[in-house]
């Protein structure tokens, strides 16, 4: 690990002014991704700003019956078990509990989870010379390398890495809004605009600016989100990243689909909102044939590589199963 100075932030303003004025300073939350990447030599901040004592841990109802606010520092374990989340947004609780381990979830925060970096082997280990995300212009080691865990949707020739988060997939399906505070003030970023596709700049994961701190994530009121399900498919039963995952929220009325919100994990550089599948479901009868047609519509544009083409059929089947499970809920 490279040497760094340590600052314990006393308020959000101080944290944003430090990261805004020192380009090589980083926010430290749970540390479960940042410290790991610093040990690997992938991240080399010269200053860490510890935000663990800031009062950003709330999980509370928004005024005017308008959903729930989750503080940027709320721990993944606390969010997953909070009654407001368990009752109103079960898909988010399930996604969080499907991620990492109990110990890690006790450290991991909402903000840190949003910003966790890809698990692409070529990114994670600087011994590999090629990675456009780590070293712009060096090439993509995964493109012609071992690419079993890589993207099938929205990727570019520059980068086929995936976003590894489970939480982000649920947030995408729930139309969450990320609240951030920067040197010039606060702004709101809809989850769909928060993470980026790789394009020609895979080194930039998100649209968060260098001086911005994530203060909260807002979940809009979605009465039918009580009918939601998170399905995660991985190489072992627990404590492994998703190969493919699906967050499904269904608005059913007398067996007909009044609306659906679907997001996929493990398939793209960002949590992938499955709008084509959602459109195909609109107004249809909730049965397996409809679900399969929606899955086909979404994955029509998918492109596999040497080791990950299995994800295309896997994603289709996962969509069908997640929707079937949501539809069968009482």
């Amino acid at each position: 690990m490279n040497p760094f100075s340590y600052t314990r932030a006393v308020d959000p303003q101080q944290a944003t002014s430090v990261i805004g004025s020192n380009a090589s300073a980083k926010i430290l939350a749970g540390g479960t991704n940042l410290i790991d990447l610093m040990k690997m030599g992938v991240e080399r901040p010269t200053q860490l700003v510890d935000i663990n004592r800031l009062p950003l841990t709330q999980i509370e109802e928004l005024p005017n019956g308008g959903g729930v606010r989750i503080g940027g520092l709320a721990r993944n374990s606390d969010v997953a078990e909070h009654p407001l989340i368990v009752q109103r947004y079960p898909v988010l609780s399930q996604a969080l509990l499907a991620g990492a381990s109990p110990q890690l979830r006790n450290l991991a925060t909402t903000g840190g989870n949003l910003l966790q970096r890809t698990r692409c082997y070529y990114f994670y280990d600087p011994a590999f010379p090629q990675c456009n995300k780590r070293q712009p212009g060096s090439g993509c080691g995964a493109l012609n390398g071992f690419n079993r865990i890589h993207a099938i949707l929205g990727q570019s020739e520059q980068c086929i890495a995936t976003n590894p988060s489970d939480m982000n997939v649920a947030l995408a399906a729930l139309d969450a809004v990320v609240q951030v505070q920067g040197a010039k003030g606060a702004r709101s970023i809809p989850i769909g605009d928060f993470h980026r596709l790789p394009g020609d700049t895979p080194n930039i994961d998100t649209n968060l600016q260098a001086d911005e701190l994530i203060t909260a994530v807002d979940l809009p009121a979605i009465p039918f989100a009580t009918r939601s399900h998170y399905l995660k498919i991985r190489d072992r039963a627990s404590y492994a990243f998703a190969l493919v995952s699906v967050a499904a929220v269904l608005d059913l009325q007398n067996g007909k689909i009044n609306g659906a919100r679907i997001a996929l994990g493990g398939v793209a550089h960002k949590p992938w909102r499955a709008q084509k599948a959602e459109a195909a479901l609109q107004g249809q009868t909730a049965d397996e044939k409809t679900f399969r047609a929606a899955a086909e519509a979404e994955l029509a544009a998918a492109k596999g590589y040497k080791h990950n083409s299995f994800k295309i059929e896997l994603a289709k089947r996962a969509i069908v199963r997640a929707l079937s499970t949501a539809a069968a809920m009482a």
């Binding site: 430290l28 109990p102 890690l104």
Partner: peptide
Amino acid sequence: GQCGACTVLVNGRRINSCLSL
């Protein structure tokens, strides 16, 4: 953070002490 051998309790909660400064 991948094995749990370093698990300790901080203020009663279990964490991986290898990923925490």
